[in-house]
Design a protein around this nucleic acid. Structure first.
Length: 548
RNA sequence: GGCCUGUUGGUGAAGCGGUUCAACACAUCGCCCUCUCAAGGCGACAUUCACGGGUUCGAUUCCCGUACAGGCUACCA
């Protein structure tokens, strides 16, 4: 068979040879040791924590080595394409401050584009044509029904499914057979002529997993789909070669098809990049089983979700770093004020088994991170969040900045020896300061004592309270009221013999606290009342008594 | 079904043949401090590293099986 003739028959309009593209995309002139990494999302419009997990690793390795990190859009699957998805991807990565050096929609774009795979169709076809001309690939005219029929038969006969060996019906078709179909205008795909023997295994070194076993490939995988667009496998080989990627970092779901990729690089005569397969991020679902994060099932893991809750992007990155490299956490403990970028990230310090996403840990990291903020930083952070998601409430919070300052000073524990760690994310902060604003305050807790007592305590308190009292005087008054009703002021004495008293000052304070704030727990009540002001306090006491 | 990867406490995880073999962090619990909460301090929390064999003077660490989990097995990525 004259493969050269076949190639011209299949791709009559491809005029360049592969050399043309090799010259168009010459080697990057990078210093020794500089790595080139890429992220290649498909534009489904959905980015979740797992994507950011990988992206952060990519970005660190590239930039830490003085290399290049670029964004390539894998828009090869028309069916899954979502409008505006690329914009979402860019904006999310921008929010998390993941910087690209080149790529789709990045300025400057870079010299290795286009970075949308659909725009590279001719490049892929040129390489496909070369493979056909060398007898390493061939056209296949099987329809979906043909393929289904083959699969059914294979299942029935209990042999492995797939297009391979004698099942690969177009593998040894004659020139005439192909010519006839083409003349009829029938659509076709280009498949690789797999030469591997699945009985033969090799070990392959993965940058994360170490030595792994790779079985030779015998599947005649599709390279170019019938719309002229490549499959992931082919696009990966061509693009990462032409764009000079040095490390292919991707999820371990690709381990299964690594053999195809290896064979492709070999067929094409390309130098093999290094590979690093990351473990997938897992979650426990309702049934109590561990499973991979899924776009469909776990919308709450969407990065947009965290953004809307106002999780601080840097804190999320810190969390991701702790699960990315096991030695990061201890390093960060020792260098609490250092920037993430100062940490020496390494691929061989990544975990081997599926990591479970841990919201508690994320929250804890957020708390300690926000506890480092100054008042100004905290206000700026809130301001951004409110402007984006609660614009209508902006004036309530920022109309009286002095009040907000006092609220945050108390809430953050700015005047304490050790800061409070109450705040996790912006929306949770707004919720916890709602009690200071009549517009947002809600009744969260109920009184634990009978109405008469509550009424008496509140009335006595209102009579005794003076806005000008200092914290001590204020508390003395509360104690006095308590003793009047059998609640002891001495906590030690109370704890020693709780049965001897009706209760303690803490119970009295709780009643007042609920009346004022609507909840039984809060930072220092006296300070809260100072912030609220005399009028608001007496109104709230009045209302509380009325509602009994 | 086939192929690949993994399996240390509630979670993340260190440990790579014996000299702290179970570090550290989160969570949980207890005590202290304390008008509540938060923060902070102190302490508890795997006689055991999925299971069964083997190699060895000796294995969580090496080998082989089994079980379980996850992934791949598309003209999806």
């Amino acid at each position: 068979m004259d493969y050269k003739k076949l190639a011209d028959l299949v791709y009559p309009n491809i005029i360049h040879d592969t050399q043309y593209y090799e010259e168009m995309y010459p080697s990057r002139n990078l210093p020794k040791g500089a790595e080139v990494l890429r992220i290649a999302p498909s534009p489904t419009g959905f980015i979740h924590l797992g994507n950011l997990y990988g992206a952060l690793a990519d970005e660190r390795v590239a930039h830490q080595s003085g290399g290049v990190y670029f964004l390539r859009i894998e828009d090869t699957d028309e069916k899954r394409k979502v409008e505006g998805a690329v914009e979402t991807i860019i904006s999310v990565f921008d929010y998390f401050k993941i910087r690209f050096d080149e790529g789709a929609e990045v300025e400057p774009q870079g010299k290795y584009g286009p970075y949308y795979q659909r725009q590279r169709a001719e490049i892929y076809q040129t390489f496909a044509k070369k493979l056909v001309a060398e007898g390493k690939a061939y056209p296949c005219f099987c329809t979906e029904e043909d393929l289904n029929a083959i699969r059914e038969k294979q299942t029935e006969m209990n042999v492995g499914t797939g297009y391979y060996g004698e099942w690969a019906v177009w593998r040894n078709a004659t020139y005439e057979q192909v010519e006839e179909r083409i003349r009829n205008g029938e659509p076709f795909v280009i498949r690789m002529r797999a030469m591997g023997n699945p009985e033969v295994k090799h070990t392959f070194h993965d940058e994360i997993k170490g030595d792994i076993v790779v079985t030779e490939n015998n599947m005649d995988a599709v390279l170019i789909k019938n719309d002229g667009i490549p499959t992931y496998h082919f696009a990966h080989a061509i693009d990462d070669h032409l764009m000079h990627t040095t490390i292919v970092l991707r999820g371990e779901e690709w381990l299964g098809t690594l053999n195809i990729h290896l064979e492709l690089f070999d067929m094409l005569g390309f130098e093999l990049p290094r590979y690093a397969h990351t473990t997938v991020l897992m979650k426990i679902d309702e049934t109590g089983t561990k499973r991979k994060l899924s776009k469909r099932k776990d919308p709450e893991l969407s990065l947009d979700f965290y953004r809307q809750l106002g999780y601080h992007p840097y804190a999320v990155k810190i969390y991701l770093m702790t699960i990315l490299n096991w030695n990061f956490e201890q390093w960060y403990l020792k260098n609490p004020d250092a920037d993430i970028e100062e940490f020496k990230f390494s691929l061989d310090k990544m975990g081997q088994s599926g990591t479970l996403f841990d919201l508690e840990k994320l929250n804890n990291i957020c708390k300690t991170y926000l506890a480092k903020f100054s008042l100004e930083e905290m206000k700026e952070y809130l301001r951004q969040f409110i402007l984006e998601y609660h614009k209508e409430d902006y004036d309530v919070y920022f109309g009286n900045e002095e009040k907000l300052d006092r609220i945050l000073t108390l809430g953050m524990g700015l005047n304490l020896k050790k800061r409070r760690k109450d705040y996790i994310n912006a929306s949770q902060i707004l919720e916890s300061i709602a009690l200071y604003y009549d517009e947002f305050k809600t009744q969260k807790d109920e009184y634990r004592f009978d109405r008469d007592l509550v009424r008496n305590v509140l009335r006595d308190f209102q009579d005794a309270y003076s806005y000008d009292d200092d914290n001590n005087t204020w508390f003395e008054k509360v104690k006095m009221i308590g003793e009047r009703y059998g609640f002891i002021a001495d906590m030690k004495a109370y704890k020693a013999n709780p049965e001897m008293y009706r209760g303690s000052v803490s119970d009295i304070a709780e009643i007042i606290r609920i009346a004022i704030t609507g909840q039984k727990n809060s930072p220092d009540l006296w300070t809260i009342m100072q912030i609220l002001g005399e009028k608001t306090c007496s109104k709230r006491l009045q209302d509380a008594m009325q509602e009994l």
